[in-house]
Design a protein around this nucleic acid. Sequence first.
DNA 1: TGTACATCAGTGAACGCGCGTTCACTGATGTAC
DNA 2: TGTACATCAGTGAACGCGCGTTCACTGATGTAC
Lengths: 207, 207
Amino acid sequence: MVPSPRSRSPRGQGDALRDEILDAAEALLVETQSEDAVSIRAVADRVGVTPPSIYRHFEDKPTLMFRVCDRQFDRLDVELRAHRDAESDQVAAVIACGRAYMRFGVAHPETYRIMFMGHRDDTPEQFRDETMAEHGAFAGLVDAVQAVADAGRLRPGIEVMQATLLLWACVHGLVSLRISKPDFPWPTLDEQIDTQCGVMCAALFTD
Amino acid sequence: MVPSPRSRSPRGQGDALRDEILDAAEALLVETQSEDAVSIRAVADRVGVTPPSIYRHFEDKPTLMFRVCDRQFDRLDVELRAHRDAESDQVAAVIACGRAYMRFGVAHPETYRIMFMGHRDDTPEQFRDETMAEHGAFAGLVDAVQAVADAGRLRPGIEVMQATLLLWACVHGLVSLRISKPDFPWPTLDEQIDTQCGVMCAALFTD
DNA sequence: TGTACATCAGTGAACGCGCGTTCACTGATGTAC
DNA sequence: TGTACATCAGTGAACGCGCGTTCACTGATGTAC
């Protein structure tokens, strides 16, 4: 291994390496588009550190991977929140969220795969419920649909949670199929998103 | 390894083992619900044969796994075809197919995962396009939607392929989310399927 | 009817692989007296 | 101002693991003459 120019962190700042590790792992994930390629050794190499150092900052590999993805999803959350705050029309806000979500998923396939397409048993306990129901993208979607309902624009006979789950299934379905089956003769992403948003809104919302 | 009671196949019938291997692999997959647990060694053990024997019948592990899943999906195809033939109402036929597809996916999570949630690079070449666009469940769905269109019951402005992709995204989304996030507070499967079918049909079909 | 031979289903032993992880350690830095 | 010490970020070497896969082989069975 080539000796790295990296110098050791001073006393109180051991956490500096933590962020470098997250950055390196994220970069590897983006470059290789393969969770397997992001081994503890590869991450350590890229940071310029030996593998055991990783364990000073993350308890094991799955946790590291989820922290990486979690950080990326936090950025999505910020974006979704911005969309909701920016739109005065509640239905338009839901559409904007849906669009942003689908674009994000297709643009970050391996991240999306880890967060939403993985095996339950490969998911560290701390990420099993939390990330999902309460926190993050899903909660935002519930809020956005609730706003539509509060404005009286949800189609009669459909409840907020039903509508939210249906929307989630649709956006997730589009994203995950495109990720798993890249060789399928898909239409343009824009075209598919437009169709899907149009039909879904017509089905769920009024006005 | 306990010596097995299995006796060697006579001359022309080497293919007998092939089916036994498929059966054993399928049984293991169903029991463990884990692709990783279905190792070449585990399959060989269960059949009562040594690992190298597997390679006389399947070129490698991914191919074996896909053959196993393919066989299960063939059964789904038969079921879907039966639904379509049994329903005189075209829309009812699409609904029946969608329901059967979702039930199948949720009932065979690991099979579904391998076929529709895997990495493109883990998919043997022979299964990359074929299983999808031309053959099997998707083609059946296209046919069913085409029948609705032929009956003049597709909502104006929506094309057959658009409607099919949307339906596919929805059913796949429901199935794959329930598989990946079993800890999520889902509604009953029946309830979720009913809502989804109701809303989708209202959105896409007329009468 | 008997013998030599080809076939081929299945074996036994081993290969290399890269992985996640653990362990006892080093050595620079700050702190107490 | 100097010395002993505690801290703690990061190291080096190795562990065990189970996997997919390969190779040269055995030995029962059918076939040709």
